[in-house]
């Protein structure tokens, strides 16, 4: 039910903040998405969409952090076998 998926904004229409909508591409499948809750979103941004509403703009820098975290763990040796 709380399934929400990332898609990229292709275009934005309307200037009423409550009904501003965007054409959002989910790997090529394009849907109309209400952008009322992401006033900062612009064309080209990725948004997380749930039941027709964008609920966040994906932070591209934070998106990389997961892999950065792995890299740091490796540097700290947390992934190496402990000598027993």
């Amino acid at each position: 039910m709380c399934l929400a998926i990332p898609g990229q904004i292709l275009s934005i229409e309307g200037d009423d903040p409550l009904t501003r909508t965007g054409k959002v591409s989910f790997g090529g499948v394009v849907k109309d998405v209400n952008l009322a809750y992401v006033p900062e979103a612009k064309v080209g941004d990725y948004v997380i969409v749930h039941v027709g509403f964008a609920i966040s703009v994906v932070d591209e820098k934070e998106a990389q952090e997961v892999f950065e975290y792995l890299r740091q763990m490796e540097e700290l040796g947390e992934l190496q076998e402990q000598p027993t």
Partner: peptide, 12 residues
């Protein structure tokens, strides 16, 4: 029906 995730859509 839903949790907090769906509430903004239903509220709208």
């Amino acid at each position: 029906v839903g949790f907090e995730t769906t509430a903004p859509a239903n509220a709208m």
